[in-house]
Design a binder for these strands. Structure first.
Lengths: 395, 395
DNA sequence: TGTATTTTCGTGGGCGCACACGAAAATTTT
DNA sequence: AAAATTTTCGTGTGCGCCCACGAAAATACA
């Protein structure tokens, strides 16, 4: 890749007109003339179907049939062609191929819509759009099937729609893990490649998973908390809707606990865990208020998802900004409290990248025929008041 | 983008054979027949050169000449064609265009080689390679012009080489800002688009800058330091080679100071700054040893570049791991100390992304004819022992 | 051995665009 | 008004691959 530069370029342009010695074969009867001493590759340095055909003494059509496994080729020729393909390391020209086939790929995206309760899913969607913009020329199309983050039945309905429409590839956010598992199973049956975004159902076969290592993100949070607090007691808050199924949120707590305990030299570190199943600020205030009355020694709070702004609002209300607060995701609400330093750190999931990379994974598979990395863990971003602007800048 | 899905796809495939009603024009004399009521777009939904030609009553060749501003078109026809192009919102098909033109673009990359003193530049190179892999089909080539990070004259020599070879686009790491400024000026003269990577010379016109906001990264470091230390004195260490010119490294210190002071409520925060111009560990030990003897109250050290591992080694030697240590970049050496918690945080620059995005910026400009974002600030990564694995995972 | 099938293959016409070539129209010169 | 230029334009070929069509070769059957 380093040495193909200037000289080579000159060569391309000056030599081209004289090199194209095509049509070595002309008729079925005369068969093909094997041209010895002819360079393996044509001027562009890459073997073409025509080159293969010449070498194999067959027509381009036959080579094409072999390449696409379209049958109608005798075993013997097939093998000869395959051998030569390997010999010349033939790689079909994606550009020409796209142009000729005019085939278009449809990617179905099954993910929560961004609503007032959380705008989180806006960013992945943007990332997907941006990716599509770069590769749309290859005939890749995208269809969105949105569902409400808390509406299990809508998920199921939309999933059914997706299957009915038989897309060429699927991206799914497995918010409801059981139903998503079913869905994943079915895509496999139809041999539709599937990419998990944001969370993963490891048991189900999939083309790729793009998202964060939940447990490790919890560990990072613990690290930050410990850095600021040392061996002081910490409260963990899970906002979990009882109908939702958020395995990866629990993993975050697990990671946090593991790390925090291992950091602490003293044995009496107190980690208190709290489940809150409500969106009402008043109720949150009550619950937290009582908890803090019970344990006035609590110096830090870790919230395992983006609803950390609820806790922040509470802390400001009771004037306890001294308590260290760490949560997830750069949302509009959280940004306000981060700016005021009530929230100390947010853990970011690089949502834009998640969208971008999921599309790219499918693109690589469908168009370029290259297998993407199966697990694409995104960096765990730590967002502070100071770096938040960059975070959104180029997304 | 959302609504082109299934139905449309069906349409493409079932309608295609019957739609292609070409050759509406046949001879110069008969002129072209204006077909009324014919749909604006062809079956694929996008206008082609041929469609323009029909509408304008000219031949495809003429349209082509207009599109490429190749002259030989009367003013009147030219304007008519342009009007119709706008009307139909014609966008040339990049795929077909690439295939037909067989033009190749050469990107010249002028950046430091990764050597034993720092492997940092390995990652951007990888990112570039990976990007090239995705877009190489469009005839994009890349040539590297490496220089030694400390060798100003080699930079100049290589820069001259680049200009001599007249590439179609340039990516440069402006390590020596004066010389890089000259170079940038010259690329402009030759109207070669230029992308700054890692650091930027804002005065020079450029297509894009991909890198970090240096000052803000210093602020983040300060935030972390303050989170752990509160109002305690901190030492800032700059490893600056006197011959090098690293404006952005000084910006990091500036950002750190600004933030640290604003965080502190007390006025007596001590920030002590130290310049070290040597690679020798022994000398580093001596200098740091004396400094710490002078000011035993120092509780944290901020190192403004990747040579933080020197300080870490010292701290371990004198058994002062209690001192908080923050530096830059995930290098092999730094990783060791991060794993042992001697280094508390590393600030990452997403080097892989820097490489990837610089190439993509040029690709967008050269091939897709879309202007990339001019300033692409990457997120400021905070790397801890806990999240370091992900950081390298998919790069 | 001759005919009907089935298998295996070659050919040709695109895909949308770039570009060279030469011919027609417009303009200038005699 | 005819000839010589210059300007403007249409046509044809090809980029590398896909795919439909039909024809030749191989096999089966009578």
């Amino acid at each position: 890749m380093q040495t193909t530069g200037w000289f080579f370029f000159t060569c391309i342009h000056s030599c081209r007109p004289t090199v194209s010695a095509d049509n070595y074969y002309s008729h079925r009867f005369t068969r093909y003339i094997v041209v010895r001493n002819k360079p393996v590759h044509n001027h562009s340095g890459k073997a073409r179907i025509k080159d293969i055909a010449e070498r194999a003494n067959v027509s381009p059509g036959t080579v094409d049939r072999v390449i696409h496994d379209r049958g109608e080729v005798s075993k013997k020729t097939r093998e000869k062609v395959l051998r030569i393909i390997r010999e010349l390391d033939f790689q079909p020209d994606v550009v020409a191929s796209t142009l000729a086939s005019k085939k278009s790929f449809r990617i179905a995206v099954l993910m929560p819509r961004a609503d007032r309760s959380s705008r989180f899913w806006e960013s992945p969607a943007t990332g997907m759009d941006d990716a599509l913009n770069e590769i749309g020329h290859f005939g890749v199309r995208m269809d969105h099937y949105w569902f409400d983050y808390f509406d299990r039945s809508e998920f199921v309905r939309q999933a059914r729609q997706v299957l009915q429409n038989k897309p060429d590839g699927v991206i799914v956010a497995p918010v409801f893990s059981e139903e998503a598992g079913d869905f994943a199973g079915k895509t496999i049956q139809h041999s539709i490649p599937l990419v998990f975004i944001n969370a993963c159902i490891a048991q189900q076969p999939h083309l790729a998973f793009v998202g964060q290592d939940a447990q490790r993100s919890g560990m990072v949070a613990a690290k930050l908390m410990y850095f600021g607090l040392g061996d002081k007691p910490v409260l963990i808050v899970n906002f979990i809707h009882k109908k939702g199924n958020q395995a990866h949120i629990l993993e975050r707590e697990e990671g946090f606990r593991k790390q925090y305990i291992s950091n602490n030299k003293k044995a009496d570190t107190i980690l208190h865990s709290l489940q809150i199943d409500t969106a009402s600020q008043t109720l949150v205030n009550n619950i937290l208020g009582e908890t803090l009355k019970d344990r006035p020694d609590i110096q830090g709070i870790f919230v395992t998802n983006s609803r950390v702004h609820r806790v922040a609002a509470f802390l400001e209300k009771v004037n306890r900004q001294d308590i260290r607060l760490i949560g997830y995701d750069v949302t509009k609400e959280n940004k306000v409290f981060l700016a005021r330093d009530t929230i100390d750190f947010l853990i970011g999931q690089q949502p834009w990248e998640q969208g971008y990379k999921s599309v790219m994974a499918l693109f690589n598979h469908l168009v370029l025929k290259k297998e993407p990395k199966k697990t694409q863990h995104l960096p765990i971003d730590i967002i502070t008041r100071e770096n938040i602007e960059d975070y959104h800048n180029n997304k």
